[in-house]
Amino acid sequence: MLQIEGYHKAYHGQTILRIPAVTFDQPRTWIKGGNGAGKSTLFKSLAALIPFEGTITLNGKEMRKHLQHWRSVVNYAEAEPIFPAFLTGEDLIRWYQQTKRGTPEQVNKLIDTLGVRKYMHQKVGGYSSGMAKKLSLVLAFIGCPELILLDEPLATLDVEAQAIILALTDEYVQQGVQVILTSHQGLAAVSEQWQYVHTCLIADKNLTQL
């Protein structure tokens, strides 16, 4: 269960997002919102990547007090992933496997499921946006996460890969993992499981539950 209290994020004194209190207790949550509404900012805050005011707690553990644990159990895939061009996909996968304590079996399964194996030995600088996206999604599922944050996971992916991603999230949800994602695309058409999910809307610098 993810709880946010007194959240406030501002850039150069200008408020981007303010959330007095919200609890995400459903296994699947879909956060909607227009461009620039603050979805990615919220995700980066939830992933403990940027400073913010307020407290965020996951399963009773507050982010700031348990940063090492947070990094182990919260996985995040960016909307537009950026990696050093000179590293290979394999380098990054091994890095995540070691830091997130993923097993070789799990990693191999993810690589095959998302079809990354054929280009994982190439340097990331030569990847197309779809290839980089798939790699970032492989990384987001490595380890033993309690919360997976997927920012626009379906963007730049073909229809087949979109279905695979949502099926993968369902698999993790079955294991007790909470998944929060943003998407401008309709999810119900891709996966039945995502037809009746907990939905939130970010608008007017605030988050409301629908």
Binding site: Q68, R71, E78, W95, T99, R101, L139
Partner: peptide
């Protein structure tokens, strides 16, 4: 950003 995983 992936270097931040060292926090884990």
């Amino acid at each position: 950003m992936f270097l931040l995983n060292l926090q884990a």
